[in-house]
Amino acid sequence: MNTEEKNVRMDAGANGNEPWMDVSAAERQRQEYLKRKQEEQERKVTPAKIRNIFYLGIFLFLVCAVAATVMCFANGVTRIPRRQAKQQKLVSALNEVLPPYNNAILKTAESKENPGNIKSTLYTAKKDGKVAGYAVQISAPEGYGGKMEGLISFSPEGRVCSFVITEHSETPGLGSEVTDRKDVRTFATLFAEKKRKPFPENLPPGKVLDQFRSRSVKTAPWRLRTEGGDIDGRSGATISSKAVTLLASRAAEILKEKLQKEGKIK
């Protein structure tokens, strides 16, 4: 106990007989004083402190370095398998929307930059050298929850075969009713054998998405009924329905351009 501290105690003791000055208040004051003292001590820079800070900094640096090395290593090792897994995912999605084909479909990709900073990729599926169908992967930023991404397939004549939304962030139960193809199962039919319908009805039903089936690209762009078109949106999810329609229309325009270039349609 140093002298200053003693003085405080003496002070408190001297005033202790005043009615408003009880022991707990004095104690509180003493603690406050000690705290202030400690803070002062902490503010002082001593060589030991500087050494400690350096030690801490180097330790933290080492931890980060080790973590970064481990992450780099993991990234390097998994680069090729990750790419393969991603391609596998795309191929399985393409297999679902396209009729049977036997060419290396990923090599036919024709990427394109569209107005509005929208990237699209067109895949051509061939069976024994003959075109079996086209698939366009494209995104639409107009969704209610932001960007949505879709895969839409066409027959060689340019009619829509199948349409799936592969990525979206629409409101569950409202916007997602438009974008998701949902297989409705009940507990009664949970274990019953599932029958898969032949292409192009192999996917579960989607009320809005199925309306595009067998429309020709010549009739694009399509519109919702509320905007003067003939696509029925879902009430309460107009924005999601509109985004889906825009996405399909955009894909159709891309294919139309290609087919016109090749002289297959006028």
Partner: peptide, 11 residues
């Protein structure tokens, strides 16, 4: 010991 300050404010 635990008398609060409010009670001991000088009147």
């Amino acid at each position: 010991m635990t008398m609060s300050e409010e009670n001991t404010v000088p009147h």
